[in-house]
Design a protein around this nucleic acid. Structure first.
Lengths: 145, 145
DNA sequence: TGGTTTATGATTAGTGCTTTATCATAATTT
DNA sequence: AAATTATGATAAAGCACTAATCATAAACCA
């Protein structure tokens, strides 16, 4: 289910009848290369030297296309703008309340939690999200409280 | 730590040197009474008959005051606007992808998860959030896929 | 390969949530 | 009761994101 690299992503797009363009290729490549969780604007700024004519609206449009094709995950951490990441295997996020730094955190899937939630609420559960908040190592060193 | 009712909330405000006003009382009372997870605008609409002169900016301002005092939790589920709830004991949220309905879901605190995340990432973990997504009972009955 | 169809990108303007600035007013302090 | 300070109402602004439009590029097909 998870898309591990750009090539698999391209295949998925092809199978869904979605055209490949240089802009899309660049956005996808950037998302698969980075470990950060960039906003649409950060992606735009990272690529605008390579694609001077590309607008931020194009980035938004294509991120939506990717999201709908299941290639990309959109994350909202409560700050201003959404963040995006390539949809790899299941993992959770650790977020620093001081500097906003985000790290991935792998953990066995919380199947029991999903089952109990379904039983208690009557929902059918399809997915879940976990975020942990605290202070990153760097902000601890700086003496932030 | 958790604030269970309006009276405790008032005490907390007083101890923090924050003034009590009719508008704040109304917003707090509304948040403690409802089981929904209203947006700022929904709170505003619910109270505008009682307080015709109150503006939506006032609602936003006070929700921020409450959040900073630890009385209120701000939640962003990826849709347009933030949602707010009184900061009661630890629980998680189940969200319907079809109608947006949100339900609370109580589960033993995931202490192990926090510990392992701290060990693996070097963060000090202070809190965490869990959201489960799926279809609510009502949307299942309506035959939504 | 070349012509046709259709999706896509760039541009611009628009929408909606949230914040800010200002000033009068209400709450607290002395 | 006067002085001080925080708060609310109003209006405007800021920002993330979307929608409309048209030219262009990608896929399809002969």
């Amino acid at each position: 289910m998870a898309i591990e690299n750009v090539k698999e992503a391209l295949d998925t797009l092809k199978n869904n009848g979605i055209r490949m363009t240089p802009q899309r290729h660049a956005i996808l490549t950037y998302l698969f290369q980075t470990k950060s969780h960039p906003t649409a604007d950060e992606i735009y700024k990272a690529l605008e030297k390579e694609y001077p004519s590309m607008s931020v609206a194009t980035v938004y449009n294509n991120l939506r296309v990717f999201r709908e094709a299941g290639l990309v995950q959109e994350l909202s951490f409560g700050d201003d703008s959404s963040r995006f990441e390539a949809n790899s295997s299941i993992h959770y996020h650790v977020v620093c309340r001081e500097c906003g730094h985000i790290e991935d955190f792998f953990y066995p899937c919380l199947t029991d939690l999903e089952k109990l939630a379904a039983k208690r609420t009557g929902f059918t559960i399809e997915s879940h999200r976990v975020e942990l908040y605290g202070l990153c190592a760097s902000c601890q060193e700086k003496g932030n409280v």
